[in-house]
Simulated assay, not measured.
Amino acid sequence: MRITIRTPVAATRRTGNRATATRWAGFLAELGHAVAVNPGPEVPPPDLMIALHAWRSAAHAARFRAEHPDRPLVVALTGTDLYHYLAAEPGPTLRSLDLADRLIGLHDRVADALPERHRDKLRIVHQSARGRAERAAPLEGAFETLVVGHLRPEKDPFRAALAARRLPPASRIRIVHLGAAHAPDWQAAARAEMAENPRYAWLGDLPPARVRRLMARARLMVLSSHMEGGANVISEALVSGLPVIASRIAGSVGLLGEAYPGFYPVSDTAALAALLLRAEAEPAFLADLARHGAARAPLFRPERERAALGRLVAELV
């Protein structure tokens, strides 16, 4: 079967949508399909299309449905689809949901955000990750804590840095931030934070292999987002054995589980600072985070994601 994956970002950008498209293309090719990501007009029309992002790919979805009304259309839902555009600008998003034969959600609580009439179309595909085989030795003299996410409003990117400012002088916590600045203002803000905050370092957008090496070495990761559709960075952390502290949002609860002990209220700097200090000071708490993460990690095996995509395509053939 010929399958096209449409993503709203340029092929050269290292973004979550692009990473998902590339990974899914690989899995579908392993299952015997011919897959193209954002092909040009010279490529023959596909037998099935997967549109990543209901709002940003709405035009692609509508065009495909109009030109090929008898061919299946799958729409993959992102955090901004579920937690922003459905409320702020629902027209294009709802149109994509109406046109789709199936919807892909990336965490276990996606159905809660969907209109009831669309829930029977939903299939959950947990994003997988390939972690390092074993943990690396941590840095001596520092409690290295990663923030992995691009600098943009949805990520609340400086929350961990602000929390680190509240820590007592004896704390060894150091925030290491990995991710691209989506605008010059964000870059300037990151540099200003580094100049004022000795606990914070922004390393910019790094290749995936180096991110995995840092994950294997770090003691903790913070995901401070206001909204997520199912952050793959959580999958990557858990399969690497890296404990996570996360803002309590649906996208993170849907990956980590309701009983996960490492949540804090969204944008609550004091609560995050308290959890950071607890993770540093209480080995039993850090071990509890790791234990809960290890219990969830099997959800994010590559073979599970490939099988889920295979079942989805089989439903539509």
Rank of each mutant, 00 (worst) to 15 (best):
R2P: 08
T7F: 12
A11Y: 04
A25N: 10
A25Y: 05
G26P: 09
F27A: 10
E30C: 02
L31T: 02
A36R: 14
A36I: 07
V37S: 00
G40Q: 14
E42T: 13
V43M: 12
P44A: 13
P45I: 08
P45T: 13
D47M: 06
I50A: 07
A51F: 06
A54N: 06
R56E: 15
A58S: 14
A62F: 02
R65L: 09
R65E: 07
H68Y: 10
D70Y: 02
V75H: 00
L77G: 08
T78K: 01
Y83W: 12
L86W: 03
A87R: 04
A87Y: 03
A88V: 12
G91I: 03
L94Q: 11
L103S: 10
D108V: 11
V110S: 04
V110Y: 01
A113D: 04
L114S: 01
P115T: 08
E116N: 11
R119W: 03
D120S: 15
K121V: 12
R123Y: 03
V125I: 10
H126V: 03
S128K: 05
A129F: 00
R132E: 12
P138V: 05
P138C: 05
A142C: 03
T145H: 05
V147H: 03
P153M: 04
A160D: 06
A163G: 08
R165H: 01
L167H: 02
P168H: 12
P169D: 15
P169Y: 05
P169L: 07
A170Q: 15
S171H: 03
S171P: 01
H177Y: 14
A181T: 06
D185H: 10
Q187D: 09
A189R: 14
R191V: 06
A192G: 04
M194S: 10
N197W: 01
Y200Q: 03
W202Y: 12
L203Y: 13
P207F: 07
P208G: 07
V211I: 08
A216S: 12
A216I: 13
M221A: 15
M221F: 03
V222S: 05
L223D: 01
L223P: 00
L223I: 14
S224Q: 08
A231F: 04
I234Q: 00
E236N: 08
S240T: 14
S240P: 14
S247Q: 12
R248P: 06
S252E: 10
V253N: 05
L255W: 07
L256K: 02
L256I: 05
F263I: 06
Y264W: 13
D268K: 04
T269V: 15
R278G: 08
A287D: 14
D288P: 00
R291P: 00
R291S: 11
G293K: 09
G293H: 06
G293A: 08
A295K: 10
A297Q: 00
P298I: 09
F300L: 03
P302R: 08
R304W: 01
R306N: 03
L309N: 01
L309F: 01
G310V: 04
G310R: 08
E315V: 11
E315D: 14
L316A: 02
